[in-house]
Nucleic acid binder design. Structure first.
Ligand code: FES
Ligand code: FES
Lengths: 144, 144
DNA sequence: TATAAATAGGATAAATTTATCCGAAATAAA
DNA sequence: TTTATTTCGGATAAATTTATCCTATTTATA
């Protein structure tokens, strides 16, 4: 469904959010440990989350990654996916035609559209906040 | 969503079905032209469709790929996807946890599950027949 | 039986994604 | 101001996916 990069990005953002509730910044090292991902690769993905204003970073000693507390409920899963995987999942054709076009549809267009619209809807209506709360409450996990 | 190989496989199967209605066998060359795919790679994918009993092949002169007419309505999109991409799309975790497990869910499990189940449902209830008919009727396309 | 036509399949190459490494730049604290 | 710490970003490598090439095998027909 999503690329590895995107999976790491989502999980990293969720972990950063849980820590930000406690006013703590986190390093790529700690993030990679907690979400079970390769550290250097994760650091790269964090950079693109920063460039896309999904998380913020503070350089230097005592720095790290964080998310402003009042932003956690504003960030949608869709933003993270779009930042990392682009929007092909939304506008691309399920069978690989140049683009998904009602006027020149692939044979599975109507079927795909329903599923894809639901996916898009889900991503746009799911906030980092609710995902992070699932972690904080102990009812969901970021690894294994 | 699907791999390139899977997209090609689905489109190839649809094209073979349309030709099989006219009792015609088709070559990888013709298939690749009609679905706009690399020929040799498409030939490889056709081999796995044959191994998975989705299409049948006839070697030698006047041979080619075909689907028994009465099987076209039996073949589900799900079989093709499973043959080529495996079942990770059905049983895998959307955030990349080892496996999707109600008892050890990722923070997005409940949200993903809804979309994934709908995708699975769609794939299992969509037949090659209806897709091929969309092509025959001219209301859908396999390339550009 | 010989020939031509067609799929099967192994070996290899190109492209993309995933992953690692290392030095540069920034920053807080001593 | 110096030092230690930390993110940034470019270069590179490994792994996977996508794509190509060539030969073997099969089969219908002449
Ligand atoms: S044209 Fe293929 S999904 Fe819309
Ligand atoms: S555990 Fe992640 S989708 Fe089910």
């Amino acid at each position: 469904m999503f690329s590895k990069a995107c999976e790491y990005g989502i999980k990293a953002a969720i972990f950063i959010a849980t820590k930000s509730y406690e006013d703590k910044r986190v390093s790529p090292k700690e993030i990679a440990e907690k979400i079970n991902s390769p550290q250097a690769f994760t650091a790269k993905i964090l950079q693109s989350l920063v460039r896309n204003d999904i998380v913020s970073s503070v350089k230097g000693a005592y720095g790290g990654f964080e998310i402003q507390k009042d932003r956690i409920s504003q960030v949608k899963l869709a933003q993270i996916v779009k930042a990392i995987d682009g929007d092909s999942i939304y506008i691309g054709c399920g069978l690989g035609l140049e683009k998904c076009d009602e006027n020149h549809p692939c044979p599975a267009h109507d079927k795909f559209k329903i599923v894809r619209d639901e996916l898009q809807n889900m991503l746009e209506n799911t906030t980092l906040e609710e995902l992070a709360l699932n972690i904080k409450s102990g009812s969901a996990f970021l690894k294994t």
